[in-house]
Amino acid sequence: VTVHVDGVEYDFDNPEEALKFAKKVAEDKNGTYEVHGNQIRVT
């Protein structure tokens, strides 16, 4: 699973970890996250 944040890609073997990371980053920057299959984009 790849999490995209501001043009940087973070790869996770564990989808739950990826989702947790995306949620935290989105909260920290008052943004949102979208899941597209095995890609998660934080905006």
Rank of each mutant, 00 (worst) to 15 (best):
V1C: 14
V1L: 08
T2H: 07
T2K: 11
T2G: 02
T2Y: 06
V3C: 03
V3M: 01
V3Q: 00
V3F: 01
V3K: 01
H4L: 14
H4I: 15
H4G: 03
V5M: 06
V5R: 01
V5A: 05
D6S: 06
D6H: 08
D6I: 03
D6A: 08
D6E: 08
G7Y: 04
G7P: 00
G7W: 05
V8F: 11
V8H: 11
V8R: 12
E9C: 14
E9L: 13
Y10T: 03
Y10W: 09
Y10N: 02
D11N: 15
D11W: 15
F12N: 00
F12I: 01
F12W: 02
F12K: 00
F12M: 02
D13M: 10
D13G: 09
N14D: 15
P15A: 14
P15I: 15
P15W: 15
E16V: 08
E16Q: 08
E16I: 08
E16L: 08
E17Q: 08
E17S: 09
A18R: 01
A18S: 02
A18Q: 00
L19I: 11
L19C: 09
L19F: 08
K20G: 08
K20N: 13
K20C: 14
K20R: 13
K20V: 07
K20F: 06
K20H: 11
F21L: 04
A22I: 03
A22S: 02
K24I: 09
K24E: 12
A26I: 06
A26Q: 03
A26W: 03
E27A: 14
E27S: 12
E27P: 01
E27R: 12
D28E: 14
K29P: 03
K29S: 13
G31D: 04
G31P: 02
G31T: 07
G31F: 07
T32I: 12
Y33P: 02
Y33D: 01
E34T: 09
E34A: 06
V35H: 07
V35Q: 09
V35W: 11
H36N: 13
H36D: 13
H36K: 12
G37K: 05
N38S: 10
N38D: 09
Q39G: 05
Q39P: 01
Q39E: 12
I40N: 01
I40W: 01
I40S: 01
R41V: 15
R41W: 15
V42P: 01
V42Q: 01
V42N: 01
V42W: 00
V42L: 05
V42R: 00
V42I: 12
T43Q: 11
T43F: 13
